[in-house]
Design a binder for these strands. Structure first.
Lengths: 343, 343
DNA sequence: GATTAGCACTCTTACTCATCGAGTGCTAAA
DNA sequence: TTTAGCACTCGATGAGTAAGAGTGCTAATC
């Protein structure tokens, strides 16, 4: 779709004014606030064209215009100027990560808390999942026949633990052998990287104990199967209610559904591309429950491996420039913090 | 406060009808629905007395009466009949606990989910904290100088783990020694029970290594200090919005504050008495944010030791009989499930 | 003396109607 | 091509009214 310079200016004005005020934007407002050098009547003509193109719409005859979802998309793709955080904001955020963290969870929760203060959107975050991080060492603790606890320590000193099922009643001794295999051969690799192929390469040295390889494979599978179901954190629920879109209790209801039934948010994060920022506007979202919302997400990494994703969810009338700047800065800073030494 | 038979009947009617309808209750309604055998006019006289006693109040002249918080308290203490769950409800709940659980957290989350279906109140739960359960064995994994992970296995096979700080750079060997001390001398005890006195009693056998005792004490202290900060689970947020009290966005706002800033709920659970059911009505609650709510809580146990608490939070106009029956049944069933074998 | 019918009074709620004002679309002039 | 002017639409606001629910009081009744 090709728009002339002035139409773009008008669309930009409609979007930005509506984002700021949550009110329909009139031709007069644009003429007054956005100094295009033309009269309201001219702007009205442009607006009529923009409406015909499906980029803006009129709630009712005697109201101004609001952007359509298509209009927001056009704005995000072509008109929006890059948002910037103030130095103050940036330094507050980085200082969070500078603090000593006891556990991975702490750093995540602090992040959520801080971001909630800087934005009126729902803040949510998955991971970090250590099964995608480089192994430093593992430790097995047998609990009962067929059950053990696996403690994973990453190369930067972060710790996580998982309960795993063992296929057979494995002896303590065998478990210790597997532990040694992991710690000596697999150091520096991630769980997904420890494939059958790699196992093969150590096969010679372990040839006397084929069973060990099977056991190791079972364990890896068991870890990967766990899907990190409990790894969703969120915050900012109270702030998002400030948005005028949530004056309607029905909307609040939908939002709480989303928060309580976390699977949708989890899926949204899981589907986030590895590279760059993803912006989904309204009906671009797969799920019904978020089709009147927009979502900005990005992944974060740990030593180069993607270990989780971070997102902001707000009304379609969202400050995209700012949201994107925030998501970008947070994921970068978080990646740095996680990649630097844990302890 | 002494009320004659009929006044009690009237108060009971006002409370129960208001709980059911959320509307002010008129003298005529009581005469019609609650068959006291007297006319509305008589009931009006009784109501005037009850109002004078501060047990009921009138929103405005031409409305019926609603119970005051004092009225609810009177009702709960002296008038309320014990609530009962249906067999169907009971069996659904017990069946949840019959299922195999992978982790403690699973059982807790299932509980929350089920209860949310049976009630329109906020469901919240703390623990279970294994440091109050009888030890089966512990295991230390040293992570870095001054840091270790402690895995606690309870006598019924439940597992939990904590990161602990060690005061000095303790050698792997020393840690293993402490582990042996815990596993041989402290089996069957809870962390709070392992006091300096008990440590003394094994002093002779350890006399050559005074240092061990200090180390053990440090570890115990470190575990107890952790206060189980992350052990709050909640659900039913979406259901509670069905309550007409939450048609007002301001109320919803307060509720979300409560949910997001979990410390208040945590404190409420922590302050719950060990024995029986605690009911706090409106301003009986310490915290401002819950003074227009009522809270019903009780603790649950594991092998006789209190390991957590469970609660329901709703508007002051809460169905106390049902809430109490539910809290009672859940905490009992949960206690049984936790006390029975974990695996 | 306790209870109740009857009635005047109060207060909320819902509804209607008129007015106001914001903003548009169209036409004709610049 | 732009703009001034104007008629028109439609939501928001507020006043006025009627209906209805419920009370409190008084006087009659049991």
């Amino acid at each position: 779709m090709k728009l002339n310079q002035r139409k773009q200016k008008v669309l930009e004005a409609v979007v930005e004014d509506h984002i700021a005020t949550a009110e329909p934007v009139s031709s007069r407002t644009i003429a007054r606030k956005y100094k295009l050098g033309v009269s309201p009547a001219t702007i009205r003509n442009e607006m009529a064209d923009l409406e015909e193109a499906g980029l803006i719409e009129q709630p009712h005859t005697s109201a101004g215009r609001i952007p359509s979802q298509k209009g927001y998309r056009y704005y995000v793709d072509r008109l929006m100027r890059k948002g910037h955080l103030t130095d103050r904001e940036k330094s507050t955020i980085t200082s969070i990560f500078a603090q000593q963290a006891r556990e991975l969870v702490d750093i995540v929760q602090r992040t959520i808390k801080i971001v909630s203060q800087y934005t009126d959107y729902l803040v949510f975050l998955s991971g970090p999942q250590l099964e995608n991080a480089a192994l430093h060492k593992v430790r097995f603790i047998s609990l009962a026949p067929g059950k053990a606890m696996l403690v994973i320590v990453s190369e930067n000193g972060w710790v996580e633990n998982k309960l795993i099922d063992l296929p057979v009643a494995v002896s303590q001794e065998e478990l210790e052998q597997v532990e040694r295999v992991f710690n000596s051969y697999f150091r520096g690799l991630t769980f997904p990287q420890i494939t059958r192929a790699i196992l093969k390469s150590v096969y010679d040295e372990l040839s006397r104990q084929r069973l060990l390889i099977d056991l190791a494979l079972d364990i890896i599978e068991s870890v990967l199967k766990q899907e990190s179901e409990d790894a969703l954190y969120l915050g900012g629920t109270r702030n998002i209610l400030k948005q005028p879109e949530y004056r309607d209790i029905q909307q609040v209801r939908k939002l709480l559904d989303l928060i309580e039934e976390q699977s949708i948010l989890r899926t949204i994060l899981a589907e986030t591309q590895n590279i760059g920022i993803t912006v989904r506007i309204g009906r671009e979202n797969k799920f019904d429950q978020v089709q009147n919302c927009s979502v900005v997400t990005a992944t974060y990494t740990m030593g180069g491996n993607t270990v989780g994703a971070f997102g902001l969810l707000g009304p379609v009338r969202m400050n995209y420039a700012r949201a994107i700047a925030l998501v970008e800065f947070i994921t970068q800073t978080l990646s740095n913090a996680l990649t630097g030494s844990g302890f």
